Simulated scan of single mutants.
Amino acid sequence: MTKYDKIFNSTETSEESLSPEEAVAAIAVITAIVDSSIEDLDAESLADILWEFEVFDEYSEEEMLEIVDRLVAIAQDEGLGTLFNTANASLSDEIVLDGFAAGVIMLLDDQNLTIPTQKQPYLKQLQQALELEDIEAEEIIKEVIAAIEETEEEYAPQEYETVILDEFGQQVYQSPLGNFVVPIPVTSEQGGTIQSQEGIVGFSDDVGTLLRIDYYPLPPEYLEEIESQGQEKYLHSTLIKKYLPQAIFTNVQGAEIKYTEYLQDTLKGYYYVLVDMPKGSTISKQENNGNANRLDAYRGLLAFINGKFLYIVSSQRTFFNGDSPGSILDEAEDIKQNILEFVETMDFN
């Protein structure tokens, strides 16, 4: 008997159905909390890790977080054994190795990329439950480690670090493309984190801060198009017809635009949008029944062009218990000013 028998010897299954991809994510969720607690799980970090898997290529960041939240709710309501059996039954032959890989990556020691001794019994039972041969399991472990090493080499600092100190000793984030630097607006004392990938960096913390910069290099033909149709028309089309449908509307049911505005100064124009996002915050609330429900939020987004880059800078206003929104005009103005103040701290190259 081992402490993992309650998972791998369980016969219970959930009435909830899982897709093969969700089954892969379920194994990652189970592995991440099996020796700790659900409360300690960092759902956003786990979703970001899974998003790198090829099987999730068609999923957005928001969709990955929704999947993780749903799986955590099943684990809370019905137990890890039930969640594992449901996932195992949903894994197709083509994707079972991805399920094992999702477990492996949750167990790896970040420092030396090995499976800690105390974690090996769990991994062995997971392998047996998934009916994998030793040689298959060993090959998957090697592939996961090799992939992480390759990623670390790819994103290793070359000419400069992503997070550096400026001349005043303050930590700043420097874009890997070298097109901007910005002081880091969150602190570790409040749970501040930096999440970045190609073309995106986001700053968030436990008290509701979310500041995100999306940036896109503009080829010469795009610059010509912008000049011919005008910045206002281009920014409106890009933000409302392309960015919002892909990044928000497909992932947050009931999300809608509440306010738009074009701002023009002597050097450039800004297109600003306020979006109402019911249950669309990046912050979740633990309910009495154990389920984690995402809170309501407003998201402000400011699109502009600087140099040869398009920027979309966004900020979130989460409504915690007892919070109620003010007028749309007041909320739009407050969030817009917050974004503009943040943009003022950016140093563009």
Rank of each mutant, 00 (worst) to 15 (best):
E12M: 10
L177Q: 15
Y311M: 01
S17P: 06
S204M: 09
Q111V: 15
I141A: 02
L107R: 06
T13S: 14
I200A: 11
L302I: 07
D296I: 02
I194A: 02
P219V: 00
L295C: 04
S314V: 00
I328K: 10
Q197G: 10
E78V: 03
T250V: 09
E61Q: 11
E261H: 03
G322N: 09
Y122S: 05
V172G: 04
T260M: 00
E136F: 02
F56I: 08
Y122Q: 07
T282L: 08
F56N: 13
L244F: 01
G280W: 00
F56D: 13
P116Y: 03
T193D: 12
T282F: 03
G254S: 04
E52M: 09
G290F: 01
L126M: 06
I141K: 04
L210N: 11
D42M: 08
F249M: 06
L83S: 12
P20I: 00
T260R: 00
S175D: 05
F304L: 04
D330M: 03
V182H: 04
F8D: 13
V104W: 00
S45H: 11
N288V: 15
V68T: 08
G103S: 10
R317T: 10
E15K: 15
S327L: 01
Q170V: 08
D205F: 05
G103L: 01
L41K: 07
F309T: 10
T31D: 04
L302P: 09
E15S: 11
I135H: 09
S281F: 00
F320R: 06
N251T: 13
E161I: 04
R299V: 10
L274A: 00
N288T: 12
I140S: 07
R212H: 11
I213G: 03
V144T: 09
R212V: 14
G81F: 00
I105H: 07
S324K: 12
T260E: 02
G191P: 03
D110V: 09
Q76P: 08
L211G: 04
L65A: 10
F342N: 05
G81S: 05
D5N: 10
E333W: 03
E66S: 12
L310H: 01
I145V: 15
I115Q: 14
N85H: 01
G199Y: 01
S188Q: 14
Y222Q: 12
L80G: 06
E52I: 06
R317H: 10
E52Y: 10
L130F: 00
A28T: 08
